[in-house]
Design a protein around this nucleic acid. Structure first.
Ligand SMILES: [Mn+2]
Ligand SMILES: [Mn+2]
Ligand SMILES: [Zn+2]
Ligand SMILES: [Zn+2]
Lengths: 137, 137
DNA sequence: TACTAAATTAGAATTATTCTAAATTAGAAT
DNA sequence: ATTCTAATTTAGAATAATTCTAATTTAGTA
């Protein structure tokens, strides 16, 4: 047991959440966090999990991905794509997006400096700033 | 004839494009550019046009909005929403997005300074930088 | 006026995602 | 251990946004 630390950390977050520790959720965490920071569509996850031999319905994939997102175990990213991406990188960061390939790539927050921003509209509060750098070949 | 300049400019762009000047396209331009910079979903446009008494199919709305986008008469914006927004502001700019209300608001490019960016990945070229400032009540 | 490529349209199809309602299960209580 | 119950899982239907198909119409040219 090499003990993948990404998986361990995510499992700990699941345990610390009010979500029950089901076999489906544990399998999902293991698949999602196996290889460090990645971006998955729901269908990606469905196929990846199937490849491990574990059987989970697509409805459960969606349920869990959304619950993980609500509980801070995943982040959701929308780009100029018809599908949503789930992001295992929980640090605040930005993205390159290549529409042609559908590939989303992390940009570390330190690599971007936003030195000027307008004031937030009356009565609203700032939630997050997302920078997407669209690229192509 | 007061001669709305936003409409005139967009009609000029339509004339200068290879797209044929059909009654549907002209009606669309008039509806879209009537009130300056705005953000519309396809359904928004469909309803707005219907209110003017003009009858255009939803398929044509989608066809035209996509063609206008391809020919630089409109821009497309994706936010954390299930629908695409079409933007009549052709200048390079950014957005506030309030998920709760679905409201997208322009931020002038001058109000944002990005003073640091990572280098673009090997063999790719920079297309655009989109900053979305997510806000809530 | 006739011609033809482009555009429009109704309605079907597709895709991503959510919902429904019935069966199963995790974890707490006995 | 056994029971209990709310949370979870699931198949399949439903929904919503968007695209496609194939027939009809039209813009702009000859
Ligand atoms: Mn879609
Ligand atoms: Mn949807
Ligand atoms: Zn990321
Ligand atoms: Zn805008």
């Amino acid at each position: 047991m090499t003990g993948n630390s990404h998986i361990q950390k995510a499992l700990k977050m699941l345990e610390n959440s009010p979500l029950k520790l089901t076999s489906q959720r544990v399998s999902l965490i293991k698949t999602l966090f196996k290889d460090g920071n990645q971006h998955f569509s729901a269908e990606d996850v469905y196929n990846k999990v199937k490849n491990t031999g574990v059987r989970i319905s697509l409805a459960t994939i969606y349920n869990c991905l959304n619950q993980f997102t609500s509980h801070g175990i995943l982040k959701m990213v929308k780009a100029s794509s018809d599908k949503v991406y789930f992001d295992t990188n929980l640090k605040s960061h930005h993205h390159f997006f290549c529409k042609a390939s559908g590939e989303l790539t992390d940009i570390d927050a330190k690599k971007v400096r936003i030195s000027k921003l307008p004031k937030i509209p009356q009565g609203k509060k700032l939630n997050s700033i997302e920078v997407i750098v669209n690229i192509s070949d």
